[in-house]
Design a protein around this nucleic acid. Structure first.
Lengths: 173, 173
DNA sequence: CAGTATCCTGTCCGATACTG
DNA sequence: CAGTATCGGACAGGATACTG
C-alpha cells in the first residue's frame, strides 16, 4: 500500500491522513467499532467491491489499526480486530459523528450518543483531560512541539495560536 | 463538485465524509484554522497544484465550510474564511491531531496544545458537555436516533452499543 | 497575485468472474 | 465463506502554460 505524501509531512494531521485518508477506511473503522469483524460482514454493510475491501483491509492492517486473528485453520480465515491504535481513533469518529449530526441531518439524527442510564442526549465536547476545561476556547493555544520544523515553527505566532473561534478574524460578531 | 455517495448514507459519518473526504480538504481546513485565507497562502503552504486548489476551494465553499469574501474589486479577489460550519469542524481536526501525535510522532510532537498561561500540555478527551463525563467509557452508549433507518436500527443492540473499549471483544485484557 | 485552460498519469473503485 | 484475478471507467491530482 503505497502511501501518499503531502508537502507538510511534519504535521500530525497530515500523518494521520496518510493512514486513514481513503474514503472507505473511515467507514470500515466505523463498522469495526460497531462490532463487525469478518470480511463478508464488512462487505454487506458497506456495499463495497470485494477487491477494494481486500485492499482497504490490508492497508488498515499495515497501518496498524486492524489486526488479523485466525478463527479457522484449513482453510485459513481471519477476522479483523481493532488494535489499540485503532481503538484510539474513536474520538475522531465521534467528532465526525457529532459534526455530521449537527450540520447534515435535515430529517433528524440517525445515530446519537445517550447516557446509558438516563437516556439523555450527550453533546460531545473536547476538553483537556487534566483540567476538564474546553480546548476550543480562550484557555488553550497551539504551539510548536519539540519535533517541529523551522518552517512549521514560523507559522505559529509567538505565544501560540488561539483555538478560540471568537478570536479568529471574520468569525462571529 | 459531484459528490461521492456511499451505501450507508443514513450515517452521519458517511455524510460528513461526502464533504471533507478528499485528502486535501482537511489540510486546507487545517490551514484555514491556522489563519490562512488567500489562494496563494494555501498554495505555498500546501504545495498543491493551483488547479487542484481551485477545485478543492470551490468544493469547500459549496459544502458550506468556507465563504468567499471580496477584499478587492477590479480585479475581483476574495479570501476564504471559515463559516460557522467550518469552525465547528475543529474538534475533528483536534482529535486527528491528538491521534497523530500519539501514534505517528516517532521523533516527538511537532504541534501540541498547551494551557495558555501555565504552558502545560493538554490531552484532548471527548466528554459530554452537560455532565463532563468522558463519552468513551461505560457511561454512554450509541443508539438509533429518530431518523434512523430500519436497517440501521437493527445493527444496534437493544440498550445501545457501548463506547467502552474494555467491553469490546478482543480489545484489552 | 489569483486564478483558468489543457494535458497527463496514477489509482481509487466498481463489475465480473474465478477458487479453496 | 473469504477472498484473488482481471478489466475498465472516473477522477484526484500534478505539470505546464496562460491571463487580467
Amino acid at each position: 500500500m503505497q502511501r501518499k505524501s503531502f508537502g507538510s509531512m511534519s504535521c500530525p494531521i497530515a500523518r494521520s491522513l496518510e493512514r486513514v485518508g481513503e474514503w472507505w477506511n473511515i467507514l470500515i473503522l466505523r463498522d469495526a467499532f460497531a462490532g463487525l469483524s469478518r470480511f463478508d460482514e464488512f462487505q454487506k454493510s458497506l456495499g463495497i467491491a470485494p477487491t477494494m475491501l481486500t485492499r482497504r483491509l490490508n492497508g488498515l492492517v499495515e497501518a496498524g489499526l486492524l489486526e488479523r486473528h485466525p478463527y479457522s485453520e484449513r482453510p485459513l480465515r481471519h477476522e479483523y480486530r481493532l488494535t489499540e491504535r485503532g481503538v484510539d481513533f474513536q474520538p475522531v469518529l465521534l467528532a465526525m459523528l457529532a459534526w455530521g449530526n449537527r450540520h447534515f441531518a435535515p430529517e433528524g439524527e440517525s445515530i446519537m450518543i445517550v447516557d446509558r442510564k438516563t437516556r439523555e442526549r450527550a453533546t460531545p465536547v473536547l476538553v483537556d483531560r487534566a483540567s476538564g476545561r474546553p480546548l476550543i476556547g480562550p484557555d488553550y493555544v497551539v504551539v510548536a512541539g519539540p519535533a517541529a520544523t523551522e518552517a512549521g515553527r514560523q507559522r505559529i505566532p509567538p505565544g501560540g495560536r488561539s483555538l478560540d473561534p471568537a478570536r479568529r478574524s471574520g468569525a462571529s460578531a
